[in-house]
Amino acid sequence: MSEMITATRCRCLRSKSSYGAFGEDLEALESTIGATTTYWCLKTMGKAGPDEHYVHKSLCRDGRPCYESGNEE
């Protein structure tokens, strides 16, 4: 499950959890500790995406104009 969810996130969405801070079960464990994850966008290295809206796991998904798939083609 965790892999599938990660895949729906934009490949430019980053947080501490992108780097194993919550181990393997990213989604489950991320929510365990409360809504404390701070995100950033690799395109802007900031809290706003290229479309000037904030970045968040609920927003940086397919459908957002700046979304990029994480799947290699």
Binding site: I5, T8, L59, R61, G63
Partner: peptide, 18 residues
């Protein structure tokens, strides 16, 4: 951040929080 948050994931876009 102006604008409603209405552009998030598309319906049936898989997992992740609502």
């Amino acid at each position: 951040y102006p604008g409603p948050a209405d552009q998030g994931g598309t319906a049936g876009g898989g997992g992740g929080p609502a």
